[in-house]
């Protein structure tokens, strides 16, 4: 019996292909694309302010709301945060990636690779939680500031308008630090991959032709590592845009895209506005990906 089915299937590769491909394809088309589509449709509906019910009629008025000043500020603030986080991640990740790719012995390399991937895969919420402990008023940062007699500087910094707050764990600086911490591994790995691909012969040739190490770094290594930086920035940028956990735990009352989406769909039940809001990061990311593609980032993934 099984033999017969087997022969039957063997003679019909197209049927086998269909049987293999159908379940995953069906799942993704129905569940995922279907969901994305309903989100798109929902964003053209609107919430009736009186009844509090979603009105399923085609309208652009939900999208018009996105262009109100407060909402534009949310987009601006989130994009700025994502950009700053990305830059900081590059600055911190590059030396480590460079060291792993060029100087670490194979044995050390394995260990360092694990040291980067374990935080990447370990629990996101718990890693965020650890910064609650660190940034708390009575936590390790304040303790350290007192130890080196810089608590005055910390106090002065927290008094600054845009970046400060009652304590580090309730400030834009706190949000920034936690984002950098959480997404850093996503930057290290692509940069390291790109650096590993720089041929040794190229570096030697540069030296033979009279360049010193700084020149070699600037003119040979950096341009070749750049696609890796862009690849990493796709993650850090996109993940920051869509996160609501960190701003709700560490931020002050100012909204970020993710926090706004959560608030609109949750407390006010305004799914159309939440859906329209979500189109923001999608558009930003599509533009970003198109630029990244131009810069050759997809080869470094």
């Amino acid at each position: 019996m099984l033999n017969r089915i087997s022969t039957f299937l063997y003679r019909r590769p197209k049927l086998v292909l269909a049987l293999l491909l159908l379940p995953p394809l069906l799942w993704f088309v129905v569940v995922y694309l279907g969901a994305l589509l309903t989100m798109l449709i929902n964003s053209f509906f609107y919430l009736d302010g009186f009844t509090g019910k979603v009105v399923p009629e085609f309208t652009l008025r939900t999208y018009a709301k996105l262009f109100e000043t407060t909402n534009l500020q949310i987009f601006g603030r989130t994009t700025l945060m994502a950009a700053l986080v990305t830059l900081a991640c590059v600055a911190i990740a590059f030396p480590l990636s460079y060291y792993i790719a060029r100087f670490a012995s194979p044995r050390l390399k394995t260990w360092l690779y694990l040291a980067v991937t374990i935080p990447l895969w370990s629990s996101y919420v718990v890693r965020v939680y650890s910064w609650k402990l660190i940034l708390a008023q009575e936590g390790i940062v304040s303790w350290f500031a007192r130890l080196v007699r810089l608590d005055g500087v910390l106090g002065w910094y927290l008094g600054l308008p845009a970046v400060g707050g009652p304590s580090l764990s309730v400030s834009a600086t706190g949000v920034f630090l936690v984002f950098v911490y959480i997404w850093l591994p996503y930057m290290i790995i692509p940069i390291q991959t790109a650096l590993e691909r720089v041929p040794k012969s190229l570096i030697e040739a540069s030296g033979d032709l009279g360049a010193n190490s700084a020149q070699t770094f600037r003119n040979v290594i950096l341009p070749l590592a750049f696609p890796g930086v862009v690849a990493g920035s796709i993650f850090t940028f996109s993940l920051t845009l869509g996160d609501f956990i960190v701003p709700s735990l560490f931020g002050n009352s100012s909204f970020y895209i993710g926090k706004a989406v959560l608030a609109y769909q949750g407390t006010s039940g305004n799914i159309p506005l939440a859906a329209a809001f979500t189109m923001g990061p999608i558009v930003i990311m599509v533009v970003y990906l198109l630029i990244a593609r131009k810069l050759g980032a997809f080869d470094a993934l």
Partner: peptide, 8 residues
């Protein structure tokens, strides 16, 4: 971004 999948 996670919220896209989530809200979708």
């Amino acid at each position: 971004p996670g919220i896209v999948t989530g809200i979708a």
